[in-house]
Design a protein around this nucleic acid. Structure first.
Lengths: 206, 206
DNA sequence: CGGCTAAGTAAGCAAGCATTTACATCTTTG
DNA sequence: CAAAGATGTAAATGCTTGCTTACTTAGCCG
């Protein structure tokens, strides 16, 4: 590669387009990010498009330009959450499951945000389609949990896995939404013990 | 009017005031009842006072007359839920706890409505005062759970009780709000087994 | 009966909502 | 550079919201 592309600050990264002050893709991302936070914290109906636009520092009309409607933006956020959850529940094995679950539940706000994705799952816009998405991903996760034992997944095993899922959901709810103490201030180590007990009680080993 | 009060059907019962087509107390109750359902199903912000008034078959203005505001009506509903939960968690003992929990979770819509009360706890109007109410009752319930073992309640026991509470919350959520199968269609008998295992794993016997 | 108060109603108001339109400005590209 | 499309903005649209006001009617008591 003989010729550099331009005399910009530093060298432009390979797959990184040159910085623009106007950047549709980046604006889209910012909107998604701040909308997610609002939807999780305040719910769909209580969140206004102006709130979101202000948080993002952009004009309200861009929400409709990039996501068609408030509803469209919500579905995009939910889709993100579904992807995150799918990725974070790959290759679940009984050995690591406790540690990983405790880790995900207590992970800081930095990067790992499975908690947020779970809370996003509890939000609804009233549209029937999103309810379908929610049920789908929850069913998939519980099936992965049930299959972790290595035994064939019958209805009873699935029921137990869903109770386990409910536990994870409930803990996350009590922590990040209701801020109940002492569970809200428990760290990873505090949770590993009880979680191990619950998992051993619910998920039969193959 | 010397004789009987009127030629109504049957005789007016003792403690039962004569039926009036206009009855403030009854209207109040109807409003509370239908509002609760709406708040639980649709959330606070997505529920309009006109929805509630229509459900109740009364005029919108009566909501403000009897409850001052939409917010006031919500708080009344939440207060009802708190009372129900307090009453339903009296005298918890480790012996009956599993059966009672399974029973309450699966109880039909007839009378026992602990599920609804729990779901009501998850709703918020944004007012800080209601968040306080929610934390209070959740803490009280988890303390009762922790004390059921008969042992002194240290922080770890409380944490475990709160995880148990989270499980109940999560199961109820997966059932009545998300309608996830097969847990949504599980009956009391189906739940007793797994619940027993979880409770034994979480609540140390004294 | 006749009036008085509690209970309920209809209509409307100001504020806030999501969305659209018409316009301005930045970036790329020929 | 200059045309053109991509990106962002300001303003206004038509609804819907919670709540209030002025009014009607049912129920009670002398």
């Amino acid at each position: 590669m003989s010729g550099e592309r331009s005399a910009q600050t530093a060298r432009p990264e390979e797959a990184e387009p040159p910085r623009r002050r106007r950047n549709a893709a980046q604006t889209r991302q910012v909107l998604l990010h701040v909308a997610r936070i609002r939807f999780i914290r305040d719910g769909y109906a209580a969140t206004t498009v102006r709130d979101i636009a202000d948080d993002a520092g952009v004009n309200v009309a861009l929400i409709n330009r990039y996501f068609t409607s408030k509803e469209g933006l919500f579905e995009a956020c939910l889709g993100m959450a579904v992807s995150d959850i799918s990725r974070d529940t790959e290759n679940v094995s009984l050995e690591q499951i406790t540690v990983r679950m405790a880790n995900k539940i207590t992970a800081g706000t930095d990067e790992a945000r499975l908690q947020d994705s779970l809370m996003m799952l509890l939000r609804t816009s009233g549209e029937e389609r999103v309810n379908g998405m929610r049920r789908e991903i929850l069913l998939a996760v519980s099936q992965k949990l049930a299959a972790a034992g290595g035994r064939p997944v019958d209805d009873q095993a699935l029921l137990r896995a869903q109770i386990m899922l409910g536990t994870a959901l409930g803990i996350t709810l009590l922590r990040s939404s209701l801020h109940l103490t002492p569970i809200d201030s428990a760290d990873e180590q505090d949770l590993i013990g009880p979680l191990t007990d619950v998992i051993n009680a619910l998920l039969p080993r193959g």
